[in-house]
Design a protein around this nucleic acid. Structure first.
Lengths: 348, 348
DNA sequence: GATCAATCTGGGAGCGCTCCCACACTGTCT
DNA sequence: AGACAGTGTGGGAGCGCTCCCAGATTGATC
């Protein structure tokens, strides 16, 4: 529906030209004052500012965008098949962080949901239509075509998380390996001898990292890494349940589980209860993400907290730099890994 | 990867003019084809469409916005002090719904977080700067100055929820009264005799409605409404705890609680456990919202589900109509109330 | 064959800004 | 005195589109 016309709601509002007339100066000068150029005498500047105030002038950003070939907006892209994301605070924290990071900028934050190839195409068109100055991409899958697209059309972009160890697009990630390591070390310290893990889908780099941390910690403690103690799931509750059953079948003697996400830990917890294992007495349980789910579990779940909001903030910062950077960019895209922190609760 | 930078990554991309040249027609004609005007002969249309395809032309929406005095965007405003919202699926469902509702439109969805008066001012400037065609406002408080602002500057707007029984701005709400009524009726049917309620802040209309439903249901069942059985809280977990303690102190004989939100129900549940009351054996518990919290509680919480995503979709639809409607608007703003549904689980 | 409405089409005139060039003005240095 | 930087400043020329008005074309009618 190519809309009907929304007449003049905004027409009639003062323009640059009118401000200039009122201040008795030229358009160019007003523009300079508005944009904080230093090449304006104080007297003129004051005069213009008064005119602006008196007229209640607000620059028309659409006109500015057209003239300057900028969009004054960045897109935050959320791949929606990933519904999981939405249900968890992760996503909202990212948004909040990005919002904060952009707060004293003129940049508007555009939220873009992409669930279908068709929508991806639409988004590509947006980029082409010149609607954004940069892109923030949340929760990338290894096979996501979007990062490559962004790279090809050379638009500033920042990912949250990375697709692999050698990510070519700028990213902000959290220390998944370190967090997992801390979680497992904690279990070992508490005297657990048989520590199992429920991993995420191993084609996702984040899942890979968390397994690595698990192994690192065991090795560092001089333990042997038993492949039978690792079962892959898909970051869902149901996946967590299945994996837990599998683990108990394989190794009934396990006394600790490190789940690579809180939601999977919740699934595991249900199975443990069904099978009469007490948490933490019989089996200690640790999750990852420190989401609301963790706090509401019974007993409350020990988990690895990510600085999610800070990640969002960092993404904004990095993107800003990329946009600023303009022509002469460094060859290496910025990358940032934020620390994680173990939050011990009653489940371990 | 070397070479020219953004400032022009978009310049150089085909324009209307070039398409016109290639198709051997005038600018106006191409514009008509692009915008689906019927006043173009089939032959011309086809020629233009071919040129568009060959050149890979994508209209520059910024230019369009300037020329047509439209923004091709709507803002979804989220009052951020309301952090609660963010932690719950409510918010994400709304977003998803709005996204879906806007899907086959040219409208871009802008997410705007407002946490401070300063940010509110910024947003007012956005509106003035003509950046959006309409506004979606989530979770309005009775004292929120935004709806009045929107009304004053006469920009199409839709609220989720309303500020009072006679809301002057268009809104989409869910049937809070009916939902509460169903919840309490359910408790009564199950043979509960002393049904208490933990309400939201009573200056919020939504809270008011849920109390009304509670009372309706009791009266319909021929029960007397005892004011001692209602305690107000603030939709937080801590508030739920406090209210539950108060209720138990007042009426140790209560055997059911209807909490006006899941989160408050979670708080209440903790206090019940502390005080040795079993759920549902001793006290039945029902929440409202059917959020993730409800499903993860122990026992899983009976709750009232809102059609949240559908609300988002409806908001988009209503806004679209308002925007289309243009200047000559009807006196009565559109209003829509969506049904709610009781989801019975083990807690009742 | 002329007339007239109905339909289609080209292109001028903006939309409100930024960019940038040219033209003042200052002083300062020969 | 003239030449010469160094500042400020005005305003033309777009940015890529939509609007809308004439003008061209068509076909039907007298």
């Amino acid at each position: 529906m190519a809309g009907t016309r929304r007449r003049g709601a905004g027409r009639g509002r003062p323009t640059l030209e009118e401000v200039a007339a009122r201040a008795g100066v030229g358009r160019g000068t007003v523009s300079r004052v508005i944009n904080g150029s230093p090449r304006v005498s104080d007297r003129t500047r004051v005069a213009v500012q008064r005119a602006v105030a008196e007229l209640g002038y607000v620059p028309n950003r659409v006109a500015r965008a057209l003239a300057a070939d900028r969009a004054d907006a960045v897109a935050l892209v959320i791949p929606e098949p990933e519904t999981r994301l939405f249900a968890e605070p992760y996503f909202s924290d990212i948004i909040r962080g990005v919002g904060a990071g952009l707060a004293d900028t003129d940049l508007q934050l555009l939220l873009t949901l992409i669930r279908t190839p068709k929508e991806r195409q639409r988004f590509a068109d947006y980029l082409a239509a010149h609607r954004v100055d940069g892109v923030l991409l949340v929760s990338v899958h290894a096979d996501d075509p979007l990062p490559d697209l962004l790279e090809r059309i050379e638009i500033p972009a920042v990912l949250s998380g990375r697709r692999s160890a050698h990510e070519s697009v700028a990213y902000v990630d959290s220390d998944n390996t370190g967090g997992a390591r801390a979680a497992v070390a904690h279990l070992v310290e508490r005297g657990r001898t048989t520590v199992a893990t429920i991993t995420g889908p191993l084609d996702m780099y984040v899942a890979q990292c968390r397994v690595d941390g698990y192994r690192d910690a065991l090795r560092a403690a001089g333990r042997e890494v038993d492949p039978a103690l690792a079962v892959a799931a898909d970051f869902t509750e149901e996946g967590g349940r299945r994996a837990m059953r599998e683990l108990l079948a394989r190794r009934p003697d396990l006394d600790a589980v490190f789940a690579a996400s809180d939601v999977m830990a919740a699934g595991a917890r249900q199975v443990l209860r069904e099978q009469g294992r007490r948490v933490p007495e019989d089996v200690a349980l640790v999750g990852f993400e420190d989401s609301a789910v963790a706090r509401h579990m019974d007993p409350p779940l020990t988990s690895v907290r990510q600085a999610t909001e800070e990640m969002g903030r960092a993404m904004a910062r990095v993107l800003l730099e990329e946009i600023e950077g303009g022509a002469g960019r460094t060859a290496v895209p910025p990358r940032l890994v934020l620390p994680t922190e173990l939050v011990a609760r009653a489940s371990s």
